[in-house]
């Protein structure tokens, strides 16, 4: 049953994260904590999204999710990044009823199974919410 949750793609991103580590320069930074489990992440963005860097400690789901976020949003035009962000949040909040679009979400579709585990949705969303805050602090609005 947890095969649905621990897709190979997720485990790959967890073991070999893309773009991990905090980098300069950046225009906005946000630090988010999941108070129930203590997982933490810091996300930095430049105001043109040419770099998104992050560091944190947490479970495979939250860490893989940060890696996928980096892969999907770094270097994207802001409007497109906002669309991808919205699609990912919608997938996570869809209780497993939302069919993900691979064209938009790429490796992010591997998180479809996570949406069936209410206790883990927060883990997957942690980097995305931190990104949204960091972007807002950089003056970038990622809400569609």
């Amino acid at each position: 049953m947890t095969d649905q949750l621990y897709q190979e793609i997720i485990l790959d991103h967890y073991k070999h994260p893309h773009g991990r580590g905090l980098r300069d320069p950046y225009s906005g930074e946000a630090h988010h904590v999941n108070p129930t489990c203590g997982d933490e992440i810091t996300v930095r963005v430049t105001d043109d999204l040419s770099d998104i860097s992050y560091d944190g400690m947490g479970c495979s789901i939250s860490q893989a999710s940060a890696s996928v976020l980096h892969e999907l949003l770094k270097g994207k035009p802001i409007g497109e990044a906002a669309k991808i962000h919205e699609a990912f949040v919608e997938l996570m909040q869809g209780r497993g009823q939302v069919e993900p679009d691979e064209e938009v979400l790429g490796d992010g579709i591997a998180f479809a199974g996570v949406a069936r585990y209410p206790a883990r949705v927060k883990c997957a969303l942690l980097p995305w919410m931190a990104f949204k805050d960091a972007a807002a602090r950089a003056g970038v609005e990622v809400t569609v």
Partner: peptide, 29 residues
């Protein structure tokens, strides 16, 4: 090498219910 959240999830899959997290005792962690 495995985060407690992931330990707890896989154990639950096998019917084994444990608690994971900071157990409301973060300073101990």
């Amino acid at each position: 090498g495995v985060h407690p959240h992931d330990v707890g999830q896989i154990l639950d899959d096998l019917g084994v219910e444990v608690r994971v997290g900071h157990h409301c005792a973060r300073p101990v962690c």
